[in-house]
Design a protein around this nucleic acid. Structure first.
Length: 652
RNA sequence: GCCAGUGUAGCUCAGCCGGCAGAGCGAAUCCUUCGUAAGGAUUAGGUCGAGGGUUCAAAUCCCUCCACUGGCUCCA
C-alpha cells in the first residue's frame, strides 16, 4: 500500500541488489522491494505486486538487503498467480468464518494447482461448496482493500487470543523478530507474511475442489484439521482450461483405461495392492520384459532367479530387518521366521558370495525381473502406482572401484535407450554423501568423482543434490515427463558400499590380497507396475504397434467376406491380429476397433477380395485402399522392430 | 493409520424424503449383408460391497466392517 518514493537516507551508505539481467541497482539501505521497483521505473513501481528476494516470494513492503537477487513481481509474472491464490485462500477463510461459528484458523497457502486453507472445529462437506463459493464471489464483488499492517508480537498476541494455531505460529515468529504482519480485508484479518493482491476484487475466479483431512503442521501426532482445497485464476477461461486439464488427466487414468482395455484388475478377493494381469496387460508387460532383456544381454548381464520367500536371517544380514521390518510380510514356519522379499539385492549378494572371484572376473552383472513385496499403508495403495507386490527390472553389479565410471556409463546408455524409445524427456540429479553414511572417505570421494565425470563427459545438465544420497552410497536419479507434462520418478543408479560389507563380499586383486567390491543397484524402468501405469497414461492407452495387445483387426464388410478376412488374418499371423466377425455394420466395426485402441484396421470387402488386396486404416482415421499384403507386412515388421512410437504406414 | 466422499448388471450410471430392481452401452439370439465412428428386434444378466439393527416392509434409515477415490501421514 505504501507507494512511497525511495527514502533518501544520506546517513547510511547505499546497498546494491542484483536484478534478473545481472545488473546491479544501488538503493538506500532501508529500501523496500517497492522502492527498488520505483527506482527502476515509475511504471514498474506502480505495477509492483510483490517481489522475490533470492528466489523467495516476499511482500513489496519487505526490505531488501545487500547483494540480494531481486525480481519484481507484477501481474505479468508467473508468481502473480501464487499471490492471487494466496489472497483467494483468505477469501475462502473469510467466507468460512461468515458461515460457520467458532472455527479456528490454521494456515492457508497457495499450492502448485491452487490453494488450501486448514481449519479446526469446522464441520463442512461438499454440499456447502455452493454457499461458500457464493460467499467468496460476494467478497470478491465487494472489492475490499487488502491492507497490510505491521504489529509488534505483543499486539498480535492480543488480536489472536481466540486463534490457538495462529498463536502457536506467532510464538515461533516471535523468536525471529519483534514485528509481524497482518492482512485485513473487510471485517476479516489474518496473521500472514503475504504478499497479497491489492484488493479482493483482483482475485478473479475461485472454484472449491475438495475437502480433505490434514494434520496440523503435517505431524501425525497433532490433531487432524479440515482442509478445503480450491483453485483460483485471473479469469474464467484459465479456470476452464484448468478443469479441462484435470478432466484429461482423469480420462488418461490408468485404472480407467486398464479396465477398459482389460489390462489388469485388483480385486477384493485377492487382496489390496495385489494386481492381477489379464492377457492383454501381460502381453504389454512381456514386450517390456523382452526389451530390457535384450538390453541386459547385450551389456553383459547374467540372468539369475531368486525365490519370493527367504528366511529372515538374510534380512538380518543385509540390514533390512532392522530398518524395514514394519514394511515386510513376515511369518513363522515351524521354528523359523520367513519373510517375503522387499528387495532383490540381498539374494543377488548371496549368489555372488557363493563363489570366489578374481579381479579378472569383475564386473559381475546379475539381472532379474524380481517380484518384491512391501506392506505399504493401506491408504497409500492406489491402482498400479502404489501396490503391495511389484516387479523390479532389477540389476546388481559387483565391480572394482576403478570400474565404476565405465559401468555407470553403460547403464546410462541403456537408460537413454529406454527413455528415448518411449519419447520421454528427462532430468537427472546426482545425490551425494549424506551426513550419516557408511564407507570410507576415499571410496565416497572416488565414487562421487566418477559419477560426476560420467555426467560431465556426457554433457548432461544435472542437479546436484548435495547430501541427498543414500547412507550406503551416492546415486543418480532420473525424472521424466509424460505426454501431458507430468513428472515421474524414473530409473536410478545407486552405488552401495554397505551391502558388500555386510555380506563380506570379496575378490582377489592383482596383488593377491582380498578386496571389497562396490555394488551397483540399477533399474531401467524402476518397477514394471509404475512404468506400465505411466505408459498407459502417457499413451492414453494408444500403445505403439510393438506394445499393442491387439495390433491388427480385420474388418470384413459383409459376412460374404469372412472367409477372405480369415485368410488375411493368417497372412499376418506373426502379429497379434483378430477378425471382427460380429454381425454388424462396417461403421460399428470401425467404431469398435477405434474404441479398443487397435493401431491398424484392415478392411476387406468384395473389391479387396477380387483384387487380392487389403485396405488399411489407422487409429488416426487415415486410410489407403488397394494395399498389397506384403507391402503392409514389410512395413509392420519395420514399425514393430524399430519400436516406432505411433502407427506411421499412412503418414506422409 | 487419519479426514472426506463413493460402492446398484461385464462397463457407465439412475433409483436413495422406505412400498415389485431400472436405463444406455456391451453380450447372446433373430432380422438385416451392409464401403468408412452406433440399422432393427428379442433375450439373458443383480446376495443393490459384507454383516448386524430399526420397521408390516430396507438398495433407501441407523451401527460395525471391507474395498475404492481424493487428500494427510509415511516411504531405502
Amino acid at each position: 500500500m505504501s507507494e512511497s518514493e525511495p527514502h533518501s537516507n544520506a546517513e547510511q551508505s547505499p546497498i546494491a541488489v542484483v536484478l534478473p539481467d545481472g545488473s546491479e541497482l544501488e538503493v538506500p539501505a532501508d529500501a523496500t522491494v517497492a522502492d527498488c521497483a520505483y527506482e527502476i521505473g515509475p511504471g514498474l513501481g506502480r505495477d509492483t505486486i510483490a517481489g522475490k528476494l533470492d528466489g523467495e516470494l516476499v511482500a513489496k513492503e519487505a526490505p531488501v538487503y545487500e547483494g540480494a537477487r531481486l525480481e519484481i513481481v507484477t501481474d505479468q509474472s508467473e508468481e502473480y498467480l501464487d499471490v492471487l491464490r494466496h489472497s483467494a485462500a483468505h477469501c475462502l477463510a473469510q467466507a468460512v468464518e461468515r458461515h460457520f461459528d467458532d472455527v479456528k484458523l490454521a494456515i492457508g497457502p497457495p499450492t502448485e494447482e491452487g490453494f488450501y486453507y486448514d481449519f479446526d472445529d469446522l464441520d463442512v462437506d461438499e454440499s456447502d461448496f455452493d454457499a461458500l463459493e457464493a460467499e467468496i464471489d460476494a467478497i470478491i464483488e465487494e472489492d475490499y482493500a487488502i491492507e497490510r499492517e505491521e504489529l509488534t508480537v505483543e499486539e498480535a498476541r492480543e488480536r489472536l487470543a481466540d486463534e490457538p494455531y495462529k498463536l502457536e505460529l506467532l510464538e515461533e515468529l516471535a523468536a525471529d523478530g519483534e514485528q509481524v504482519t497482518f492482512y485485513t480485508q473487510g471485517e476479516w484479518e489474518d496473521l500472514c507474511a503475504g504478499p497479497h493482491v491489492e484488493s479482493t476484487g483482483e482475485v478473479g475466479v475461485v472454484e472449491l475442489l475438495e475437502i480433505a483431512g490434514a494434520y496440523w503442521r503435517g505431524d501425525e501426532e497433532n490433531p487432524m484439521q479440515t482442509r478445503i482445497y480450491g483453485t483460483a485464476f485471473e479469469d474464467e477461461g484459465d479456470l476452464e482450461q484448468f478443469l479441462e486439464r484435470r478432466e484429461e488427466a482423469k480420462e488418461r487414468d490408468h485404472r480407467k483405461i486398464g479396465n477398459e482395455m482389460d489390462l489388469f484388475s485388483i480385486q477384493d478377493v485377492t487382496g489390496p495392492g495385489l494386481p492381477l494381469y489379464h492377457p492383454p496387460g501381460k502381453t504389454i508387460l512381456r514386450e517390456l520384459e523382452a526389451f530390457v532383456e535384450d538390453l541386459n544381454l547385450d551389456t553383459g548381464y547374467d540372468y539369475v532367479e531368486t525365490p519370493h520367500v527367504f528366511k529372515t536371517e538374510l534380512w538380518h544380514r543385509s540390514g533390512h530387518y532392522q530398518n524395514y521390518a514394519d514394511d515386510m510380510f513376515i511369518f513363522d514356519v515351524g521354528d523359523d521366521e520367513f519373510g517375503l522379499k522387499p528387495m532383490n539385492c540381498p539374494g543377488h549378494a548371496a549368489i555372488f558370495q557363493d563363489h570366489s572371484w578374481s579381479y579378472r572376473d569383475l564386473p559381475v552383472r546379475y539381472a532379474e525381473n524380481g517380484k518384491v513385496y512391501r506392506k505399504e499403508q493401506r491408504g497409500e495403495l492406489s491402482g498400479l502406482s502404489r501396490v503391495w507386490s511389484f516387479t523390479i527390472d532389477d540389476g546388481h553389479l559387483f565391480v572394482r572401484p576403478d570400474q565404476i565410471e565405465r559401468e555407470v556409463e553403460s547403464i546410462m546408455d541403456a537408460i537413454d535407450d529406454v527413455l528415448s524409445t518411449f519419447d520421454l524427456e528427462y532430468e537427472v540429479a546426482l545425490a551425494t554423501r549424506p551426513e550419516k553414511s557408511v564407507g570410507s572417505d576415499e571410496i565416497w570421494e572416488r565414487a562421487e568423482e566418477q559419477l560426476e565425470a560420467v555426467l560431465e563427459k556426457r554433457n548432461i545438465d544435472y542437479d546436484l543434490e548435495s547430501g541427498d544420497g543414500a547412507f550406503y552410497g551416492p546415486k543418480i536419479d532420473y525424472a521424466f515427463k509424460d505426454a501431458i507434462g507430468r513428472s515421474w520418478d524414473g530409473p536410478t543408479v545407486q552405488l552401495d558400499f554397505n551391502m558388500p560389507e555386510r555380506f563380506d563380499l570379496e575378490y582377489v586383486g592383482e596383488d593377491n590380497e582380498s578386496h571389497r567390491p562396490v555394488m551397483i543397484h540399477r533399474a531401467l524402468y524402476g518397477s514394471y507396475e509404475r512404468f506400465f501405469m505411466m505408459l498407459i497414461e502417457h499413451y492414453e492407452g494408444n500403445f505403439p504397434l510393438w506394445l499393442a495387445p491387439e495390433q491388427l483387426r480385420v474388418l470384413p464388410i459383409s459376412d460374404a467376406n469372412l472367409g477372405y478376412a480369415h485368410r488375411v488374418k493368417n497372412a499376418f499371423e506373426e502379429f497379434r491380429v483378430e477378425v471382427d466377425q460380429r454381425d454388424s455394420t462396417l461403421e460399428r466395426k470401425i467404431r469398435a476397433a477405434h474404441d479398443d485402441r487397435v493401431p491398424y484396421q484392415i478392411i476387406v470387402g468384395d473389391n479387396e477380395e477380387e483384387a487380392g488386396t487389403i485396405s488399411v486404416r489407422d487409429r488416426f482415421e487415415d486410410q489407403e485402399y488397394d494395399v498389397e499384403v506384403d507391402t503392409f507386412k514389410a512395413h509392420l515388421e519395420r514399425e514393430r522392430d524399430e519400436k516406432r512410437p505411433a502407427p506411421d504406414f499412412l503418414a506422409d
